[in-house]
Nucleic acid binder design. Structure first.
Length: 651
DNA sequence: GTAGGGTTAG
């Protein structure tokens, strides 16, 4: 079987030449970075042996200069070692290794392998395959070292066809029992999302297996969305290291099994094992997604007690966790103390500020980012446009949308359009929002139309709302949200017959309503409530507390707004249903179990309804409690009777 | 005279 690739000779590398200038810099290079241990008796061999494990290109060049000076530049083995050193250096440029290799007249397999390795590690891993093909054509037979390198290139380049042919070479040349090659094959198929092929290699020879094999097959199934199979293998494997745990934790969290990921992390810590950075960032992300502040804080203190090096990624994950758990001040503090930041650090800070309703501060951040000469990316603009939307800054939103597309050449994605439609729609420019949707270069998705539908509800646009609502219901007949929004539009316009009609249609079609839940962390546990929940062990106290809240709020003149309840039931029952919304239960529980004056933090999976919003504001005043509610799209800071940072006072 | 698995964020 032949690999049909072009010769390496046709590749367009710009190779700098090794000449006197390379030798000369030996004299001018700073002593602390140079190979300074040589004397007149030092040989190129001994110089190679004192190179550090990951040498800099400069250090390799110094040794190279000596090799050239000693007249050994034609020695295959010595040049192979030089390439081996370059493969381990942090630089990924292939120009210099290419030049070295080009000057070796007839490379032996050792030099060729190390060149393949350099190319596999570089920016154009496919060049590695070209060299392999060249090698085969010139009858230089690959050995057991060649395959792991060339398969690594296939994995990186996602070169499925070429990798599969190389697998055939492995079989033909009798290397199927080599554990390094087997592991490289399992990893290659896994990287290319060929779960079955990867598993097949594993199953063909289950005895030929070490920890790396187990970790590779674990990753295959975790990556392929078969977390249950990965879980089973994890239980069966004879030995585990930090990579095994890392694979499982990342696998759970990526697959959306956030609690399982956190549980797995806890188990690992109980066994006395130390986490790595990927694990820490991942569990911080899981805590952030779940809104578990206490858990996130626990991970933060673990990081500190382990004296874990605080990298840019780790700090960024902490900023994101605190922002998503309602502590934007903590995010600000970590951000301001960071000696270095990357674009992701700015992204999470901008998005965090925007979600807390701090639109102007988010925009100021964005200008600082530009001031530092960093290049914003698509996610940065999601934060920026969200900030404009939250603060009702229509003109600025339009300005940044233009800046994104025209100055930065970023093609708008669905999220960007979503922000713009939200911004225009909320501010009352529904016709402009509609025009933007109609001009879009990509097909608008139902969520985008839903955003416009919500704007129709805010501004009481029955006719347009009806058109969009019907269109959406036709598009996604089992999605209850669109029926609810349309019914809400009718209800607001007092068109009760239409409300009943839509509601019946919804019941007839058997749509499934996403159950609303709210959670609160207290006493080291997570407490989750659904509407009308009576499962909690302190349920009777919670319902008594609801009565107390009712009484205190009645004293300040509150009466329930029952329009969000569209059930065909009496007024009194409607008031009860709304009173038992999940966030009310969570707040009542919070008032019961947290100390007077402490903040109550709630996470909710849906939007807060208008009545609950009003009630939360009143509770914050009457009970003198700060209440922070994270709903599906933003934070509400209820304090002293108002929703702070929410100038527009829209949900 | 060379080798491998996990790599995070809206």
């Amino acid at each position: 079987m032949l690999i049909t690739v072009h010769s390496l000779g046709r590749s367009t590398h710009k190779c700098p030449t090794i000449s006197l200038s390379s030798c000369n810099f030996l004299l001018s290079f700073p002593a602390q970075n140079s190979i300074s241990h040589y004397s007149s008796t030092t040989t190129p061999h001994s110089l190679l042996s004192i190179l550090p494990p990951c040498p800099s290109v400069q250090q390799v060049k110094q040794v190279h200069a000596h090799i050239v000076a000693a007249g050994l530049a034609g020695n295959h083995t010595i040049m192979g070692h030089l390439l081996s050193a370059l493969a381990l250096s942090p630089s990924t440029s292939s120009d210099y290794p290419c030049e070295i290799f080009r000057r070796i007249g007839n490379p032996n397999i050792f030099a060729a392998n190390n060149m393949i390795r350099c190319l596999a590690k570089g920016k154009l891993p496919r060049d590695s395959l070209l060299l392999y093909a060249d090698m085969m054509r010139s009858n230089l037979l690959p050995n057991n070292y060649t395959f792991p390198f060339v398969l690594q290139a296939c994995s990186k380049a996602l070169a499925i066809a070429e990798g599969t042919q190389i697998h055939a070479h492995v079989v033909k040349l009798g290397f199927t029992e080599d554990i390094y090659i087997r592991n490289a094959l399992i990893h290659f198929y896994s990287a290319c999302h060929k779960t079955e092929s990867s598993r097949q290699v594993f199953d063909e020879n289950p005895q030929c297996c070490d920890l790396v094999t187990w970790n590779a097959i674990l990753a295959t199934h975790a990556r392929g969305g078969q977390i249950d199979i990965a879980e089973k293998l994890f239980g069966e494997m004879p030995d585990r290291d930090v990579i095994s745990w890392s694979t499982m934790i990342v696998g759970y969290v990526q697959g959306g099994y956030l609690e399982k990921g956190l549980e797995c992390f806890r188990e690992m810590r109980e066994k006395g094992l130390f986490p790595n950075e990927a694990i820490l960032v991942t569990v911080l992300s899981a805590s952030a997604q779940l809104g578990l502040l206490e858990h996130g804080q626990l991970i933060h203190s673990t990081i500190e007690s382990l004296n874990f090096p605080m990298s840019v990624s780790l700090s960024t994950a902490l900023i994101d966790m605190y922002a998503k758990c309602g502590c934007i001040e903590q995010s600000r503090q970590i951000f301001s103390k960071m000696p270095q930041r990357d674009v992701w650090t700015w992204n999470v800070m901008i998005c965090g500020l925007a979600s807390h309703g701090l639109g102007n501060e988010a925009l100021a951040m964005f200008e600082n980012l530009r001031g530092e000469g960093l290049q914003p990316v698509n996610v940065t603009f999601v934060g920026v446009l969200n900030a404009c939307s939250r603060a009702g800054l229509v003109d600025k939103g339009k300005h940044y949308f233009r800046l994104m597309t025209e100055d930065y050449g970023i093609t708008p994605e669905m999220e960007h359009y979503g922000c713009m439609v939200d911004l225009l729609g909320r501010a009352g420019y529904v016709a402009d929002a509609l025009e933007l949707i109609e001009k879009m270069t990509i097909q608008p998705d139902p969520v985008l139309w839903g955003t416009l539908l919500a704007a129709c509800k805010i501004h009481g646009l029955v006719e347009l709302g009806e058109t969009i609502g019907k269109k959406l219901i036709k598009l996604e007949p089992t999605h209850d949200g669109y029926y609810v929004l349309l019914a809400g539009i009718y209800a607001k316009a007092n068109k009760w017959e239409d409300v009943v009609r839509v509601r019946r249609l919804m019941v007839d079609r058997g749509t499934s309503k996403v159950a609303g839940w709210s959670l609160i962390e207290a006493q080291g546990k997570v407490h989750q409530f659904i509407a009308g929940d009576r499962e909690h062990e302190r349920s009777s106290e919670i319902y008594m507390m609801l009565e107390v809240i009712d009484g205190r709020l009645a004293e300040v003149g509150y009466s329930p707004d029952i329009s969000p309840v569209l059930h065909d039931i009496g007024e009194e029952e409607k008031a009860i249903v709304i009173k038992e919304h999940s966030e009310r239960l969570a707040i009542a529980f919070g008032l019961l179990v947290t100390e007077t004056g402490n903040c109550i933090r709630i996470v909710k999976n849906l939007r807060v309804c208008e009545d609950c919003h009003k009630v939360s504001k009143l509770i914050s005043k009457v009970f003198e409690r700060e209440i922070i509610v994270r709903d599906v799209s933003r934070f509400h800071h209820f304090k002293d009777g108002s929703d702070e940072n929410n100038g527009l006072n829209v949900l």
